[in-house]
């Protein structure tokens, strides 16, 4: 079953990196998202996975019944997902502001603040 996860991880990394190499800002943010999924799944998978056995301790017992899924990567991924969301939200809003001043989604078009100022000046009149 790790084989199928390995393929999904590979595909997600490939797609994420490909999107990050685009010139579009939005595609960069989407690429970052994909890379986040890929990394979460990687952490989830590398130590092996267990089908349908969440790391929960049954009532009346002090330890979970073997086999159970490894709780440690899950804790790490939970953190990663939430922080990833924070980064994504920030990147998106940053993009929105950039777009408003530079009027372009092309990363090559927003090289410096001076240039974006020049771009906007005719519009102000």
């Amino acid at each position: 079953m790790e084989v199928i996860l390995a393929i999904v991880i590979g595909a997600l990394y490939a797609a994420g990196l490909y999107m990050m190499m685009r010139r579009s800002f939005v595609k960069l943010v989407i690429g970052l998202s994909l890379l986040g999924y890929a990394s979460s799944l990687l952490i989830f998978t590398v130590n092996g996975v267990t089908r349908g056995q969440p790391p929960l301790v049954q009532e009346g017992m002090t330890q979970p019944v073997e086999p159970f899924a490894d709780p440690l990567p899950q804790a790490l991924i939970l953190t990663a997902i939430v922080i990833g969301f924070g980064v994504q939200a920030f990147a998106l809003v940053l993009f929105k502001r950039t777009y408003q001043s530079a009027n372009t989604d092309d990363l090559d078009g927003i090289k410096s603040t001076e240039e974006s100022g020049k771009v906007r000046s005719p519009e102000m009149t």
């Binding site: 393929i7 991880i9 595909a11 997600l12 990394y13 490939a14 990196l17």
Partner: peptide, 15 residues
């Protein structure tokens, strides 16, 4: 090409 190579490398790594 670069991205797919990197993805393939990651797949291999996980395997």
């Amino acid at each position: 090409t670069i991205a797919i190579s990197a993805g393939a490398m990651m797949t291999l790594l996980v395997l």
